[in-house]
């Protein structure tokens, strides 16, 4: 292990600088639930629900960094990537709207779901604080949809597809695609829980998810290609980095 603590500090500093680059001159627009939309009870519920996942992720980072100091550097890089990807609005011509991919599916297959939840939470917090993107009161809900939902679904799909004998490319594509769709499905669930009022919950949930479909179907496919492309790039350039989380790559 040649990696030293000085290098770790430099990587973390570099990642923070990378975050700063993303003071984009316009608001990114997407699944993040804006400040004030959720009632206090639901905002608190999602926040409390997200805490165990963040603690689990922190413990996982600590454990794996103790075994391999290089893991911290990789985690910082993935954190920077998730931050960038999740505030990158992409126009979807078929719907005439903009939305963003999440990057948590890709993150989960590179460093695991727990650490991905932690770095996604950091990204969401910075976006809520400085980019007018998401909100502090809706932080827990956004962590549950993009962090927890995206990371766990992406990781499980990747593992499942690999067990079925499918190629790395297809598994990474599916991880990106499904994690994007799961993220927006959970956002729909959160909104339906909080806003259904006198309307039946499932009617509200279906109405919201149907409204997301024209934008998110093409965007999910883009996120699939993004994940597969990034995975392929790292696999060709530095396959040993993938060995941090995936068996059988090197």
């Amino acid at each position: 292990m040649i990696l030293d603590s000085k290098f770790d500090k430099r990587i973390i500093t570099g990642s923070l600088a990378f975050f700063l680059i993303c003071f984009l001159p316009d608001k990114a627009q997407a699944m993040h639930i804006s400040e004030g939309i959720l009632p206090a009870s639901w905002a608190g519920f999602w926040f409390v629900l997200s805490i165990p996942f963040i603690i689990w992720g922190l413990a996982d980072i600590k454990k794996r960094a103790a075994m391999n100091p290089g893991f911290k550097a990789m985690t910082a890089m993935v954190g920077a990537a998730i931050f960038i990807i999740s505030c990158m609005p992409i126009p979807v011509p078929t719907a005439g709207t903009c939305s963003h991919p999440c990057g948590t599916g890709l993150g989960a297959i590179l460093i695991g779901p727990g650490p991905t939840i932690v770095v996604a939470s950091i990204g969401l917090l910075l976006q809520a604080l400085f980019l007018a993107h998401g909100g502090l009161t809706t932080f827990g809900a956004d962590v549950m949809s993009m962090g927890v939902g995206g990371a766990l679904s992406g990781y499980l799909i990747f593992k499942l597809f690999r067990k079925m004998g499918l190629s790395f490319f297809i598994a990474a594509f599916a991880a990106g695609l499904i994690s994007d769709w799961v993220t927006y499905s959970i956002t729909s669930l959160e909104l339906a829980c909080a806003l259904h009022g006198d309307v039946a919950f499932w009617d509200m949930f279906l109405a919201i998810i149907i409204a997301f479909i024209p934008t998110q179907i093409p965007l999910g496919i883009i996120e699939g290609f993004l994940s597969a492309g990034a995975f392929g790039f790292i696999k060709s350039r530095r396959p040993e980095l993938l060995g941090l989380n995936i068996e059988g790559v090197c």
């Binding site: 608001k27 990114a28 627009q29 997407a30 699944m31 993040h32 639930i33 804006s34 400040e35 004030g36 939309i37 959720l38 009632p39 609005p89 126009p91 005439g96 709207t97 903009c98 939305s99 007018a132 956002t187 909104l191 909080a194 806003l195 259904h196 009022g197 509200m204 109405a207 919201i208 409204a211 997301f212 934008t215 998110q216």
Partner: peptide, 22 residues
């Protein structure tokens, strides 16, 4: 080219009587 936060999230929130704040 509005974001889905505007076309979906805020639209449903406004219909339910909740508006996004700064």
């Amino acid at each position: 080219w509005s974001g889905v936060d505007e076309t979906v999230v805020e639209k449903f929130a406004e219909e339910a009587g909740r508006e996004a704040r700064d």
